[in-house]
Design a protein around this nucleic acid. Structure first.
Lengths: 146, 146
DNA sequence: CTGCTTGCAAATAGTTTGCACGTTC
DNA sequence: GAACGTGCAAACTATTTGCAAGCAG
């Protein structure tokens, strides 16, 4: 299990979707797969530059967009102006605390129930992969109860 | 019931919150109150210019931020890059269709149930005023069932 | 009159685009 | 070698900020 194998498996994934396995795409996917937090374009680029020679920001933008179209990456809007990106894995959700800024992760079950409710009531099919909510985190909510 | 009365009532609302009742604030609130769709800063400014002499974009930005802090306006992120604003009224929610772009409004009940679920499960207090979801609208969902 | 607000102009920040060259298949 | 993807530089768009002058209380 060498890092070469990781690269090879990523290339296979890309070619399976009919994409050219370019070094830009490989490096972006490689970095995305290493953690499941959501990262900005600049974070991603910085991590790539630590081990690959060079990549232009515009290439990172274009690459992420391509990966998104092919179901390999997800776009997450946390509420500040920069778009975050994550490797497409299991559904999990976030809440950004409006008081302290903490980002909490939450499991999928209540979200699925909610999505089903909405389908029943309105016929819509809600994307429930990486929802972002705002509000008060557990700690700030508890404090404001006093 | 003259338009003067509208202006006077808005001024009262502003002063009640300890804000100076400036013409910028009055005109922004007046325009926001006229419809409950969500409008961009430029939309709002354009509507103001139809009847008031002049207002700078930066003033609209600052005014909306102030109104938000005082609970008179809500910020809504529909997913494109510009922030939309609405008059703060009853809770209602939106779904942006990822296929056709339609924006559907939905009532509050399932959302409240969901918020209570999350409080029970995670202790968080979710803001459920103007949530924006993404997915497939009724029509596009039906079509993709074939 | 005193401080909060505004207009103006300029600066940011994130993102997008056109084009010539390099790479992948 | 044909099509696709990348780097580079420049353009855009929405938004923010500093400052001097204006208006509200």
């Amino acid at each position: 299990m060498q890092s070469t194998d990781v690269v090879e498996s990523i290339k296979r994934v890309l070619r399976d979707r009919g994409l050219h396995a370019t070094s830009a795409r490989v490096s972006v996917l490689e970095v995305l797969r290493e953690g499941h937090e959501h990262r900005s374009v600049e974070d991603i680029r910085a991590q790539i530059l630590e081990r690959y020679p060079m990549i232009d920001p515009s290439t990172v933008y274009r690459t992420l967009e391509t990966l998104e179209e092919h179901g390999l990456a997800v776009r997450v809007e946390l509420g500040d102006k920069r778009t975050r990106w994550a490797y497409m894995t299991d559904a999990h959700h976030h809440m950004v605390c409006r008081r302290c800024g903490a980002v909490a992760e939450m499991g999928d079950a209540p979200f699925q129930r909610f999505a089903d409710d909405l389908t029943g009531a309105y016929g819509v099919r809600v994307d429930m992969q990486h929802l972002v909510l705002h509000g008060l985190c557990r700690r700030c909510a508890a404090r404001s109860d006093t």
